[in-house]
Design a binder for these strands. Structure first.
Lengths: 221, 221
DNA sequence: AAACATTTGTCCGTATGTATA
DNA sequence: ATATACATACGGACAAATGTT
């Protein structure tokens, strides 16, 4: 078995990275609530580091849209409204759709097999009523497609948007996650379009596969 | 004449912001060359500030994809290849297309008038062979549409991608900017689609309006 | 191989600026 | 309006890590 050579030990993490990951997690899962004021001194003490790496992490979180900084005044967790779901999903749908279009042109049989497998697991998770597992398989499915599209800009933007969706669900939906089998069928259609290298269909179904859940979530609120 | 009350003086700029803007500018216009190593100490001296705001600015530039940081090792200006143009334009085309789709639904007559005016100035700039002016009007045209779409995520992503395109042009094309009148006609079609509230046409033409220039630029190299 | 030089990462004190009394 | 309290922005010193001789 070949051992990946460039597996540079990922355990070492700078204080800045730890702070960034932790704060992002806390904002997404609601530990840090929308609108909550953030004091770098407090956060520094809480994480056992100094204020500098905290501030550096906050810069990035602001850029990602998780916090708002009012220079010289205050820093607070960004507010979130239920209407925000209508802002987050559409660009994600567009970029996922683009990914499907690109991937359709170049995907290999092996990667398609992988998608079929994941989608089967996804179906089973839904049928056996395991919404959390299902959600993970759904993410896996889409990530395979995005990775195949092989575009760093798309990856960066979509992963940020995914995090915002996750936060949205945590804040507004808590435990009740909706899962319908529509998505399984759409995935099958996407796979079929990949076989046929039909970029148009792949893109169209993919967009639907994201806009439909948006409308479902929005109606729930 | 009513004086805008919440006009919080925009002239005040923190050292971090100045550093960020200056460094971004230097990277885009090529003053800081692709692959060039960056020493925060040097940059701090050059800008007459300390290393802290420099480091904060570098965080953001990394996130935007203008530099690469290898923790504990070095920080360098991100390399750029001519193939990168094929990575930058497609997501931008998708998001602009989405913006056209959204804007088509809600744009007012007044905003359409604005687009017509800008497009006329754009045409005149091309006809009188003023490529730089033309480029600005083109950007104005698209920005009006994006602002009407009124989605912060779209705005953030597209503006970053626009900056990468600008950098690409500076690095690879220098002075020779290509301008054809195809774009003017496409803009007219988009305007027409807005009148008719035809989201499909607006989105389709908009995508074309970005993919075509990509191919033109790529062939030039 | 080990000590050095260099650069990055972190800490903390101080200055600047903002809000409140 | 002025003074006071407090949080943020910045600077400079120290610590840790890298690669170099």
């Amino acid at each position: 078995m070949p051992i990946p050579k460039d597996y540079s030990s990922p355990v070492r993490m700078s204080a800045k990275e730890r702070a960034f990951n932790q704060l992002q997690k806390w904002i997404i899962d609601g530990t840090l609530e929308p609108g909550e004021k953030l004091f770098d001194k407090e956060l520094a003490e809480a994480l056992g580091i100094s204020r500098t790496p905290i501030r550096e992490a906050l810069q990035l979180l602001e850029y990602q849209g998780f916090i708002e900084m009012f220079p010289g005044k205050e820093t607070k967790v960004k507010d979130i409204q239920k209407e925000d779901v209508l802002k987050i999903y559409p660009p994600l749908a567009s970029l996922q759709s683009l990914s499907a279009e690109i991937t359709a042109k170049i995907i290999t049989k092996e990667e398609i097999e992988k998608l079929i497998e994941i989608n089967n697991l996804y179906r089973e998770a839904i049928e056996s009523n395991q919404p959390f597992k299902a959600m993970e398989y759904d993410e896996d499915f889409h990530n395979v497609i995005i990775e195949n599209a092989n575009n760093q800009y798309i990856m960066d933007f979509t992963s940020t948007l995914q995090l915002h969706i996750r936060r949205f669900k945590y804040v507004f939906l808590k435990e009740r996650i909706t899962l319908k089998k529509d998505s399984v069928v759409e995935h099958e259609k996407i796979i079929d379009a990949f076989y046929k290298r039909d970029t148009g269909i792949a893109a169209a179904i993919m967009k639907k596969n994201w806009i439909r859940p948006m409308e479902e979530v929005y109606r729930l609120l």
